[in-house]
């Protein structure tokens, strides 16, 4: 197999690269932009349209990065948005009490890491299924905020929250710059560290990973804590998008969008495959798709159906051990071999 890889020509390598899932997503992103450019050039070329599209879709982006790691292990965290609301609550409440942002924001993030650790402990050390565990903790965390906040609204948040989601630096949305920086860190973590390699191994076969000497429980625990931290960071983006206001129902249901983007990004729900580039591109695809479908006159329900279809296709392609792209590659290889023999 290794020998076979070495024998690949530059052309073959380029061919393989061009049909990678991430590249297919890039094509889709380009096509979406072209469709909007052709159908509504007046709107597409209007200053600020592209920035608006990007800003509209990045309010949950930090959670996509965290979810990518979780799903790579074959798990899922449904409690991420409830966790996000806890962070918003902690930060907002402290700031209402006159605590400066330099303390309130880290305190909110710390609360999220603790809640992530609770998830991690239940999944990794108690052996509970991640889906059930995080559904339960989602109810628990959001319920706690509901009880504590009641019908009140938190309105005191640091000014930089709104800056993150509404301002631009050199014409580029600030949230996009931050997202790409965070993604770069995650790429390094996933591809250049032992921890990243361990995630792939656990996702492929946790038992084998355990027998090969990995501390699977510890790695799971750390990953859920990272997810908690990213949910906390997401509260900055999400509350910023809403101009600095939080209620107990804030972000309700957005966890499904997070999971959907991650799946669309090529992270297999079964674990063991995927990366960071795919979910990052998928975040932009979802932003452009939702926005542009509206500009093209599709109603909100129609958009949901359309996005649902795209997700089902993505899951069919990526969830099996060898997706359609692999099958295509295999068929191409067989045909080449047959031609060579003839």
């Amino acid at each position: 197999m290794i020998a076979g890889k070495k024998m690949l020509t530059k052309k073959q390598k380029a061919g393989r690269f061009l049909i990678r899932w991430e590249m297919l997503l890039m094509y889709l992103l380009i096509v979406l932009n072209l469709v909007l450019l052709i159908m509504r050039p007046d709107l597409y070329l209007k200053p600020g349209t592209l920035a608006s599209m990007i800003q509209s879709g990045l309010n949950i982006c930090p959670m996509v990065l965290g979810m990518s790691l979780i799903m790579m292990m074959g798990d899922v965290d449904v409690s991420c948005t409830a966790n996000m609301v806890v962070c918003a609550y902690a930060t907002g409440k402290l700031m209402e009490g006159g605590i400066p942002p330099a303390i309130a924001v880290p305190a909110g993030l710390a609360a999220c890491i603790v809640l992530g650790a609770v998830n991690g402990f239940l999944v990794a050390y108690m052996g509970m299924p991640a889906v059930i565990t995080t559904i339960a903790t989602s109810l628990l965390y959001r319920g706690m905020v509901r009880v504590a906040l009641g019908t009140n609204v938190l309105r005191v948040f640091p000014d930089f929250y709104s800056t993150v989601m509404w301002e631009e630096a050199a014409g580029i949305p600030v949230c996009m710059i931050l997202y790409l920086l965070m993604a770069a860190v995650f790429v390094v973590i996933l591809h250049k560290s032992r921890y990243g390699r361990a995630l792939y191994m656990i996702g492929n076969n946790a038992t084998t990973a355990e027998y090969s000497g990995m501390n699977v429980r510890k790695i799971k625990m750390i990953t859920f804590m990272i997810m908690g931290f990213m949910s906390g960071l997401a509260s900055i983006f999400y509350i910023g998008r809403l101009g600095g206001g939080a209620q107990s129902a804030t972000g309700n249901g957005e966890e499904m969008t997070v999971i959907a983007i991650t799946a669309l990004g090529g992270v297999s729900a079964a674990g063991g495959s995927g990366g960071i580039y795919g979910p990052v591109i998928a975040t932009f695809i979802m932003a452009v798709l939702k926005y542009s479908l509206s500009l093209l006159g599709m109603d909100d329900n129609g958009r949901k159906i359309f996005i649902g279809i795209i997700l089902i296709v993505a899951v069919i392609v990526t969830s099996t051990e060898r997706g359609i792209i692999d099958d295509l590659k295999e068929n191409m290889r067989k045909k080449r071999q047959a031609r060579y023999k003839n």
Binding site: D299, N301, G302, I324
Partner: peptide, 29 residues
């Protein structure tokens, strides 16, 4: 492979039908 392609085509056909039906109902008209 055939099953997967078939299931994708079915999903797309179903979705296309539903989208055709919902284009003018409710929002964004």
């Amino acid at each position: 492979m055939k099953k997967r392609v078939l299931s994708m085509l079915m999903v797309m056909a179903l979705g296309a039908g539903m989208l055709a039906g919902c284009g003018k109902s409710g929002g964004n008209t």
